[in-house]
Design a protein around this nucleic acid. Structure first.
Lengths: 205, 205
DNA sequence: GTCTATAAGAAGATAGAC
DNA sequence: GTCTATCTTCTTATAGAC
């Protein structure tokens, strides 16, 4: 595999665990299997590696956002979500979503890295808020808007209903990032959260 | 004011903004108005300063937790919360609580510092979870348990109701920590959250 | 307890051979 | 593109005078 990309991968792993300042160029090089000076043939500085990670992140997530906008409603329709939103189905969807974001290496590392660097500058703060606040609330809000219009959910404030769904999930996710041992405990809470959400906002019960 | 304490205060300020590794002993000293070597007469190392901050934090919050256990229900009773839980009152309480934790210097700095150091070791991870997950859910859960028993709230799962109340609030708080410019936007969402929560779980409407 | 001077070492980055 | 050797700067920490 391409060394230039491997450097980004190993750097992301280290940055997500220790934070930018606690990772040394030599650490990254060692993981890649080269010496530190060789790394400077690929990137002109440590900062340039970090910037490249952020660039790739923006590219990847922009692509994903585009795909979701295109497929969002269609996919939901294909999945029959507008006709069949049973509690069992909702639980399964919630768990799948949760476990994907929790365990997917790329998502987990980016999330942890941004957590550690979010106060470093405004760009990073904005990136964090976009990824974990504005975009998911906007996307979920759109989906819940359709579900409400279709009579499967009931509320006069879709935006807050979306917050009520998403904030606890994200909160439980951050506990797992911090203390992986508590994953089972949080999965249990996740199930209860979704069941309760369904009872509060679901119309077809 | 006592230099030893001033060192802790200035160090906390810097750690909460830049993270431990990005703060140099000289920075702390400069803020205190002394030179770096003088600082070593008060603390034997940079790490010792950090540890002292954590120790003080544990001491302070343990004290506070004790006071809340003693006063929790009594204070609620004195405030007439069991008889009069109007939406207006709930909104006011929510905002007060939110703005206190958002703007109180000590709480804000500790929260941001732990956010930046939470993955550094297990002790810090546990401290974070205790302060911002387990303790508040436990305390609020107790209060909501009483309110439910008193017939002011309705649910068959107090624990999840508490999560539904607290997680969105904490989530909005973290947005403000990251992007102070969005405080007004988040306060607006906070109000809507509390109103919706009241409509979902309140019994007396 | 504060200072100046300085040691000791770490970390980012470059030079130049291969 | 990778290496060894090295430079430079930064950072923690100590020594010792006042």
């Amino acid at each position: 595999m391409d060394t230039k990309q491997r450097i980004l991968d190993e750097a992301l792993t280290l940055f997500s665990e220790k934070g930018y300042a606690n990772v040394f160029v030599g650490d990254i090089a060692e993981r890649v299997g080269i010496k530190a000076p060789s790394l400077y043939k690929h990137y002109k500085s440590k900062k340039a590696i970090f910037d490249a990670i952020i660039d790739e992140m923006n590219r990847r997530f922009a692509e994903q956002a585009k795909a979701m906008q295109i497929n969002g409603t269609d996919a939901a329709q294909d999945a029959g979500i507008y006709e069949n939103l049973s509690e069992d189905r909702l639980l399964k969807l919630g768990r799948e979503f949760f476990l994907y974001y929790l365990h997917d290496d790329y998502n987990r590392k980016i999330r942890k890295m941004l957590t550690l660097e979010q106060f470093h500058d405004k760009e990073l703060a904005k990136a964090y808020s976009k990824l974990y606040v504005d975009d998911p609330l906007s996307y979920q809000g759109m989906l819940f808007g359709y579900l409400t219009a279709a009579g499967l959910l009931k509320t006069d404030n879709v935006e807050i209903m979306t917050l009520h769904f998403y904030a606890p999930i994200y909160y439980l996710l951050t506990v797992c990032d911090r203390e992986p041992d508590r994953e089972e405990e949080m999965l249990n809470k996740l199930d209860q959260h979704i069941m309760q959400f369904d009872r509060l906002y679901g119309r077809t019960k």
